[in-house]
Design a protein around this nucleic acid. Sequence first.
DNA 1: CACAGATTTTACCAATTGGTAAAGTTACGA
DNA 2: TCGTAACTTTACCAATTGGTAAAATCTGTG
Lengths: 204, 204
Amino acid sequence: MTQPARKPSRIQIENRQRIRDAALGLFATHGFRGTTLDQIAGACGMHKPNLIYYYDSKEAIHIDLLNTLMTEWLSPLDAMDPEGDPLEEILEYIRKKMEMSRLYPRESRLFANEIVQGAPRMLPHLERTLKPLFDQQCKILEDWMAAGKLARMHPAHLIFSIWAVTQHYADFEAQIAVLLPGQDRFADGADQFVETMFRKLLTP
Amino acid sequence: MTQPARKPSRIQIENRQRIRDAALGLFATHGFRGTTLDQIAGACGMHKPNLIYYYDSKEAIHIDLLNTLMTEWLSPLDAMDPEGDPLEEILEYIRKKMEMSRLYPRESRLFANEIVQGAPRMLPHLERTLKPLFDQQCKILEDWMAAGKLARMHPAHLIFSIWAVTQHYADFEAQIAVLLPGQDRFADGADQFVETMFRKLLTP
DNA sequence: CACAGATTTTACCAATTGGTAAAGTTACGA
DNA sequence: TCGTAACTTTACCAATTGGTAAAATCTGTG
């Protein structure tokens, strides 16, 4: 499966990174089929066959991106502490998600693309990795609500709404840019709005 | 621009509709470049050159879909009445948006695809059609807040959050299906959660 | 029915695209 | 510094794809 085998050389590490970086932006905006190997090659100053030297196929690049995405993407959710202050734990999670939309919009859009298209290459990942984590966090939320520390609501839909609102700023950036022109979409009040919104929702 | 010219015959009307219906589903899930004319032809039981008989090009089909989408998509937003009860007007808008996610997920995903990819064919539409309507609705919201009928908040971000949460159920359906398996994603409590969420947020 | 125009089908084409073969070049340890 | 393995480049290919030409067929109307 992996191609040149054993110890990746310095050049291999660097060039694979260059390829991933170029491919990430292209896949995120044009989708998998909308991106050509020539585009990726051009974006990272390499020749097409050189890509295939580092990755078996175009699909292999995509899969590699989705794999690394999956782990890094979920880390903030994993960090919620059942022993911490419920409201602050959730608000901190929301802050991290907003920061990710600001710093890594390409990753957010890559994920959005994959899910909108029915998650053809991610369904197993979602089942094996996301689902258990999701269930676990739902349980934590339920316990907090049962203890009266949070307003009662459907925990799954709460998580969905957090994902929806925070990722919207990355995924629908083009639309927001039209509707709030000239403004910094984040500095402008998005963070404050989102924090206020969920604080109001969650306070018992 | 338009091809066969004057009065569209019965057959033309029917077949264009068949083409649009097939293309909508395919564009929504595979994106523009990820969809082939052969796929569209196969999905509506026609031959490829027959599509070109009714539409000048693949792009013409896509543009036609986006045009009709744009008008139908915005109609619920347009229906908000400045004279009505603020909370009920907004909640009714939210209900309509949830219903649209339930009834027309393909349209929602087509729109999402287009925006995630930077709205290459919709930017003018967004500027000319959506922006004025958006500004007008923001003004209405501001007036309601100034009159103390709604909690004070940034009206633009309020609208974004409504769009984000309601469209999430259509656009991320594949993810939700994994996380809430076997359940009807809408009947299960999405509507109730969303209504409660925004009622709590908006109540002064 | 007859027939003109509308519609459908078959055969085809040029460009693009993912990928390969193999020759050339570079980096690096002995 | 020399040789070999790692890396890069050039040329190429088969399949796919958007689209065309034109023959075949169908439809509605006088």
